[in-house]
């Protein structure tokens, strides 16, 4: 089995796909960094001074005043306290909340890449892993060795998982390193609000807490990786089923784009929540953004994706081991 994985890695590296992916991500990160930099500049001009400390201090005074008032509810008080903690942290650690550093850039990049960019990059690898063997005809050599077919496919799948992990790591690494040149490499301790729950059309803040950015980022990475594996497995299945790289990619791309569009218009079509493509924005649950369809939450979305993942894997293996090769 090790040798088979070695084979797949050798082919993957020889095709130089990962280099291309790293280049694409690199270029995009530079682009976004520049855009972000421009935005901060205009913001600064609008505010006049760049003394952000006074603004934060003012904010803290306001919150303290409100807290001392006896008329506000306990729940609201809790919210304000969290807010106060956050503001105090900014001041103590000399962090400009409007100009947050490379680690925050990385977070925003990951959150926006989760439903399009990363799946797209994963697709580039996954969709031709099997179909290229068919289109080149090498499948005939691959399957006439004294090796069971399921082992051949498993070695390809394990390679895919390696590649997916690598892509997520590359995205994280490049977004940090490249944006840091402009924003500085700080801010891993920045507190960030999480734990929002949306129930019955209302924001439930009972579980809201402050989390260090690095902990938050670890969770983000986990979610991005999970989504990437699911999308990779689905493209892998299409690669087995369709045997044409272009067609497989087309189908997957259509699914991803339709997911982005559907998210904006399916709030009344409830069963759409079982489609995998509206469940990809897992990181939104961490931020507390309202889900596209009522009743969706992090564990629901993850279970839906898990079911799709398992089904795709099962179909891939059954079809690949049973099918006649012409």
């Amino acid at each position: 089995m090790n040798k088979l994985i070695q084979n797949e890695m050798m082919k993957l590296i020889a095709k130089k796909r990962l280099v291309v992916i790293a280049l694409i991500i690199g270029v995009l990160v530079i682009l976004f960094t520049y855009a972000q930099y421009k935005e901060i500049q205009t913001q600064r001009e609008r505010l006049g001074t760049d003394d952000w400390r006074t603004a934060v201090q003012q904010n803290i005074v306001d919150i303290t005043n409100r807290l001392s008032s006896s008329r506000i509810s306990e729940e609201w008080k809790k919210q304000l306290k969290i807010s106060l903690q956050q503001q105090q942290y900014y001041l103590d650690h000399d962090i400009n909340p409007a100009e947050p550093g490379a680690s925050t850039f990385m977070r925003i990049f990951l959150e926006n890449a989760i439903d399009m960019l990363i799946p797209l990059m994963v697709m580039v690898i996954a969709s031709d892993l099997v179909s290229s063997e068919y289109s080149q005809g090498t499948v005939k050599l691959l399957l006439t060795r004294p090796v069971k077919r399921w082992k051949v496919l498993l070695s390809k799948y394990i390679t895919l998982c390696f590649a997916v992990s690598l892509i997520v790591a590359i995205a994280g690494f490049l977004s940090y390193i490249l944006s840091g040149v402009v924003f500085g490499y700080k801010g891993f301790g920045t507190p960030i609000l999480t734990g929002f729950n949306i129930s019955d059309e209302a924001l439930n803040t009972a579980n809201v807490k402050l989390l260090s950015l690095w902990k938050f980022l670890l969770m983000d990475f986990g979610l991005v990786w999970f989504v990437a594996i699911v999308v990779g497995t689905l493209s892998f299945m299409l690669s087995v089923l369709i045997r044409s790289t272009a067609a497989g990619m087309g189908v997957m791309l259509a699914a991803l784009i339709s997911g982005a569009i559907l998210s904006n218009m399916v709030s009344s079509w409830e069963s759409a929540k079982y489609l995998f493509m509206v469940n990809l924005r897992l990181t939104d649950y961490m931020k507390g953004t309202a889900p596209p369809i009522e009743g969706m939450n992090l564990s629901f979305s993850m279970s839906v994706l898990l079911v799709w993942w398992a089904a795709a894997l099962l179909v891939s293996f059954i079809v690949f081991t049973k099918r006649d090769v012409y």
Binding site: K3, L4, Q6, N7, M10, K11, A14, K15, Q136, G137, T138, K140, L141, L142, R145, P146, V147
Partner: peptide, 21 residues
């Protein structure tokens, strides 16, 4: 049919690939 090998690998690596199987 035709011997379809991996065009992006060297001859040696092609043989290495199949010998590992």
């Amino acid at each position: 049919e035709n011997p379809e090998l991996y065009p992006y690998l060297s001859g040696y690596n092609n043989l290495l690939h199949f010998s590992r199987m």
